[in-house]
Amino acid sequence: MKVVRSKTFTAPRAWGALDIAELDGTSVRLHWTDQPYRWHVNDGAEVFAVLDGAVDMHYREGGVEHVAHLATGDVFFADVGCEHVAHPVGEARILVVEKAGSV
């Protein structure tokens, strides 16, 4: 049994994470950040849920860049091959569910 109080979680560096669980090759991690990540493509699908704060999720479709503003409670799904980068607006806490070992 584990209880995670996401609102109080911080990390010593941007995108620091707390490993919550690994479920049949899928990792569930809580991230804290106040800095953008980097453009990347995961080798599996990814679920990105904003638990606290806000994030501008930049993604490319057909070579065109789009931005989705994600508020607390919003979820972004990146399927295999979706190029994306998260830009927090201030501090944010994000639950990420993805293939274990993904970037």
Results as ranks from 00 to 15, higher is better:
residue 66 H to F: 06
residue 54 A to W: 01
residue 11 A to W: 01
residue 31 H to G: 03
residue 65 E to S: 02
residue 14 A to Q: 13
residue 92 A to M: 12
residue 99 K to H: 11
residue 81 G to F: 09
residue 36 P to D: 01
residue 35 Q to R: 15
residue 44 G to Q: 02
residue 73 G to E: 03
residue 23 L to D: 03
residue 93 R to M: 06
residue 10 T to F: 04
residue 42 N to H: 15
residue 50 V to R: 12
residue 86 A to P: 08
residue 45 A to C: 00
residue 22 E to L: 01
residue 78 A to W: 00
residue 17 A to T: 11
residue 68 A to Y: 04
residue 83 E to L: 06
residue 71 A to K: 14
residue 89 V to P: 10
residue 53 G to A: 02
residue 27 S to M: 15
residue 87 H to Y: 14
residue 46 E to W: 08
residue 81 G to S: 06
residue 28 V to H: 13
residue 36 P to M: 06
residue 8 T to F: 10
residue 75 V to R: 08
residue 76 F to H: 08
residue 14 A to H: 15
residue 88 P to I: 03
residue 37 Y to C: 15
residue 2 K to M: 10
residue 79 D to V: 03
residue 15 W to T: 04
residue 85 V to P: 01
residue 76 F to G: 05
residue 17 A to H: 07
residue 41 V to M: 07
residue 9 F to T: 06
residue 66 H to P: 00
residue 69 H to E: 03
residue 63 G to P: 10
residue 90 G to C: 10
residue 48 F to R: 05
residue 27 S to L: 13
residue 99 K to E: 03
residue 32 W to A: 13
residue 51 L to G: 02
residue 14 A to Y: 13
residue 27 S to E: 15
residue 27 S to N: 11
residue 17 A to L: 09
residue 13 R to H: 15
residue 18 L to M: 13
residue 28 V to E: 09
residue 102 S to D: 13
residue 78 A to L: 00
residue 32 W to H: 13
residue 14 A to D: 15
residue 34 D to P: 10
residue 58 H to Q: 09
residue 92 A to V: 08
residue 34 D to L: 05
residue 89 V to M: 09
residue 101 G to A: 05
residue 23 L to R: 14
residue 70 L to M: 12
residue 33 T to Y: 04
residue 64 V to Q: 14
residue 2 K to R: 15
residue 58 H to D: 00
residue 29 R to F: 00
residue 9 F to A: 07
residue 11 A to P: 08
residue 28 V to K: 11
residue 67 V to N: 06
residue 55 V to M: 10
residue 15 W to N: 08
residue 3 V to Q: 13
residue 43 D to K: 04
residue 16 G to F: 08
residue 50 V to C: 11
residue 36 P to I: 02
residue 19 D to P: 14
residue 72 T to D: 04
residue 96 V to N: 04
residue 85 V to F: 01
residue 10 T to R: 14
residue 61 E to W: 03
residue 53 G to T: 01
residue 73 G to L: 07
residue 1 M to Y: 01
residue 32 W to I: 02
residue 96 V to E: 02
residue 90 G to T: 02
residue 81 G to C: 05
residue 33 T to K: 08
residue 55 V to P: 14
residue 92 A to D: 02
residue 61 E to N: 09
residue 83 E to A: 11
residue 85 V to Y: 00
residue 49 A to Q: 14
residue 99 K to P: 14
residue 63 G to V: 01
residue 84 H to N: 09
residue 95 L to H: 11
residue 79 D to F: 04
residue 79 D to K: 11
residue 57 M to D: 02
residue 13 R to E: 14
residue 49 A to V: 10
residue 47 V to Y: 11
residue 80 V to L: 15
residue 49 A to Y: 06
residue 7 K to F: 08
residue 12 P to E: 07
residue 27 S to I: 07
residue 47 V to G: 09
residue 69 H to F: 00
residue 39 W to P: 05
residue 47 V to A: 15
residue 31 H to I: 07
residue 97 V to H: 04
residue 89 V to C: 12
residue 93 R to T: 03
residue 86 A to H: 05
residue 35 Q to N: 12
residue 19 D to M: 09
residue 79 D to H: 11
residue 89 V to F: 12
